[in-house]
Amino acid sequence: MTQIGFFPGCSLKGTSSEYAQSIFTLSKMVGINLVEIEDWNCCGASTVHNINNKLSVTLPARILTLAKQQKLTEIVAPCAACYNRLCIAQHQLKINKFLRNQLFETFQICIDNNISILNIIQYIEKYIFEKIKEKIIYFFKYPVVCYYGCLLVRPHKILNFDRLEDPQSMDNLMKKIGALPIDWAYKTECCGGGFSVSRTDIVVKLCGEIIKDAINKGAEAIIVACPMCQSNLDTRRSCINNYLHKKTNIPVIYITQAIGLAIGIKKKDLGFKKLFVKPTFI
């Protein structure tokens, strides 16, 4: 059984447990054992860098130090915010020798520059897809839009993942399971991220525009790979409907849930029950 490090992050342990469930179910199908990094802490997500720059590097650096101590050479970070913060910390410590020494001397933080950090799409491409290709039984033949958001693609110089303005990786994966990904304008627009509680008005407006374009382009589902995007577009739907003066029922589905359905995994094992907006068409 292949062993790969796993960094769930706070969302996957709580507000987005259905995402975690679908990832574990898929991984089990292909015989991958995801090993959770022991005693991990919060990466600081979209918040800490606002008020404490050094801490925002130190927190993810501690996680990478633990990964190194636990002899993990590759880790999957399914939450786009965690993926983003881990990559930025690794980059900062790579280029800033002074900071690297300082963190080592004060906190015994020492990270491996070569540890590879995978986001969920890279993980699926590298480990999952080849092995489940033959198992696809129900083609997910719906028109969908793939929503990448900010954190998977920016800052491009550091993450170096996919294309900056018009990424294709999720669209390609969705095509392979039979879906019809639509070209649309909001692929990498912002959903309002961490403002869900503090500036709900901004989140509702930005999500409203995203949902409006998805519906106008004829999509039946929005496919996502980030717990924050999913939660803003899904759990805030009643406010978004008020903003749009319209009852919308387009579901927001994790890419792992869509792939799971295609290979015949039951809805309940993919956490579909936890979605606020029900995908009634499936």
Partner: peptide, 30 residues
């Protein structure tokens, strides 16, 4: 509704080595 759907854990998930973390906060005085 989040609680009903099991998306809101009642209890915190506390890490073991909290000392290491509180040391960060002490050093950065926040």
């Amino acid at each position: 509704y989040m609680f009903i759907k099991g998306k809101l854990p009642l209890f915190p998930n506390i890490i073991k080595n909290r000392k290491h973390l509180s040391f960060f906060f002490k050093k950065y005085k926040k």
